[in-house]
């Protein structure tokens, strides 16, 4: 049984700068992986490569055993890899509902219809259902550019999840979101993700979020994978603490058991 995602000796250089090198990662269905590392450590480069936004300088990326090297973001999305963005990529001057309907049209229906109205009763209901799931239904008729960051992040993620990707990559889902809202947002997102059985990888700077939601952690440093293992193990690792996390993280039993519990709740 081939892994959902497998990268082999992945490397990316920009001229003299090595943004990422020697990346060997394997991901399976249902896993929730937190990706940490300071800025410039290679996290976003990694995500950009896995989603086809940039091509690796060398190495291979296999999704369900098939290489996605050379594929455009569009093809990679169609191959079952979904992605949310650090800066939410939305259709700014359209309403939330319209954003959702367009996402449905391209991710789900996949047919470029010319005369069938986009706003059919059925489609609108479906869209509302998804918005409800992400708890942003009340914003359906609002224009995206007027909305707060948290709502935009949720919409961004909701749209990416529509195609029911097997692998979902979240790029800093809680960045720019107010501290008191971070857990709420992640609760909503992870509930939706767990429902779909997708494997998830999320890039995060907030270690509390990582502790709470990830079962496994990938720590990046200087373009390499410094550590790859269960959350507790990686976060208490001396090297990781020195180079990435710092020594102030409270890894008390409370937090650990919470995250272990949430990890086992899935069926």
């Amino acid at each position: 049984m081939s892994a959902l995602l497998k990268t082999v000796n992945l490397e990316r250089t920009f001229g003299a700068v090595t943004a990422a090198t020697d990346i060997n990662v394997e991901l399976n269905t249902g896993e929730v992986v937190g990706v940490i590392g300071s800025n410039g450590a290679g996290k976003t480069t990694f995500i950009n490569m896995v989603t086809g936004y940039i091509q690796p300088s060398s190495g291979d990326i296999l999704v369900r055993g098939k290489s996605i090297i050379g594929k455009s973001p569009r093809d990679v999305s169609l191959a079952g890899v979904g992605r949310s963005f650090q800066v939410p990529q939305l259709f700014q001057e359209l309403t939330v509902l319209e954003n959702m309907l367009i996402a449905f049209g391209f991710s789900v229906d996949r047919k470029l219809s010319f005369l069938k109205p986009l706003r059919s009763k059925e489609k609108v209901e479906k869209a509302h259902a998804v918005l409800r799931e992400y708890e942003i239904e009340q914003y359906a008729e609002e224009v995206v550019s007027t909305l707060p960051q948290g709502v935009r992040k949720l919409l961004d993620i909701a749209m990416a999840m529509l195609a029911e990707p097997g692998l979902m990559l979240l790029d800093e889902p809680t960045s720019g979101v107010a501290i008191e809202d971070k857990f709420l947002l992640m609760d909503t997102v992870m509930a939706a993700v767990r429902k779909s059985d997708a494997a998830t990888m999320f890039v995060e700077h907030d270690m509390e979020v990582v502790l709470r939601y990830a079962d496994r952690v990938l720590a990046f440093y200087d373009g390499r994978v410094l550590a790859d293992g269960p959350t507790q193990t990686v976060l208490s690792d001396a090297k990781v603490q020195e180079l990435v996390v710092g020594h102030h993280l409270d890894l008390s039993e409370n937090e650990a058991s919470t995250s272990k519990e949430s990890a086992h709740v899935r069926t």
Partner: peptide, 16 residues
């Protein structure tokens, strides 16, 4: 609608 989507955010459209 896709026309407006293209105008607003091509990257998003490709990722969809």
């Amino acid at each position: 609608y896709a026309g407006e989507a293209v105008r607003e955010n091509e990257i998003r459209l490709e990722y969809l």
